[in-house]
Amino acid sequence: MAETIRKDLEYENDPNLVHNAPTKVRVKKKIRTFKRYIPFFIMLAPGLLYLLINNYLPMFGLVIAFKDFNFVKGILGSEWVGFKNFEFLFKTQDAFIITRNTLLYNGFFIVLNTVSAVGVAILLNEIRKVFFVRLYQSIILIPFLISMVVVSYLVYAGLSVESGILNNTILPLLGLEPISWYMEPKYWPFILPIINLWKSIGFFTIIFFSAILGIDKEYYEAATLDGASKWQQIKKITIPLISPVIIMMTLLSIGRIFYSDFGLFYQVPLNSGMLYDTTNVIDTYVYRGLLQLGDIGMASAAGFYQSIVGFILVLIANLIVRKRSKDNALF
């Protein structure tokens, strides 16, 4: 029933159909449709205005990436230098390592976080006692509230050679030799995703859980009547119905795939040089390189480069999503 009504509505509002009407009618109809949407535009206005001021107005600053910034001349008056500020990102032997690390870690984070959080959200949804739902949810969210600097202290408390719990208590219990965690790059491709998962699983779980909460209960009731097992219900109802949220979250993460959590890659490994092979990412490289120079042109260039690559990747990903299901695409 609901389906047919939805179809009807789409039919009526489909702009492609309006196109076929004779011109006069089309214009009239356009005005009428537009009038109908005025309340929507009023709703949009304050939020868009804010974004315009907060995000679009300062975007003139993007030109800094292409300028030799000078205080006397100001941002707009400084000289154009083309792509000179970008050179340092590519003219280095580390370009491959930092790009590889950034992409691999972030790609892995996207998969790991999504899969685990969807799983946890589904399990939460199975719990019948409200008390336990709340308890689990609260606990899982706690790490998200802890700032990365503090996380780095906690990781240090666990991994430090001399005063860490792992080396002092746990490894001896297992009869293992202490390990210099901060000197051995090979452990970090495991340590970093674990920390990242620990910290962000609560955030993702909440989002997916509230998506599941939004699912109409009737579907499950009908499925149960039809004798569907839990597993089938999850596969056939829950996941398909929250997939728009999963897809959107993934698209947004892809857009930021060239950015990485600076605290996670800089503070948590204590900036230990021996770990650079597995912890150096674009953000940390840029930070270390510019600490002395303090060149805002080069810093902007790095940001611009990260954004533009993410942007292209999202456009591609969005195109693919669009091919499959128009509604799930971002735009």
Partner: peptide, 15 residues
């Protein structure tokens, strides 16, 4: 400055 950023990173790594 291009060399400088690269060298700063290498020094950070080993020093």
């Amino acid at each position: 400055r291009n060399e400088y950023t690269a060298v700063s990173n290498v020094i950070d790594q080993y020093k």
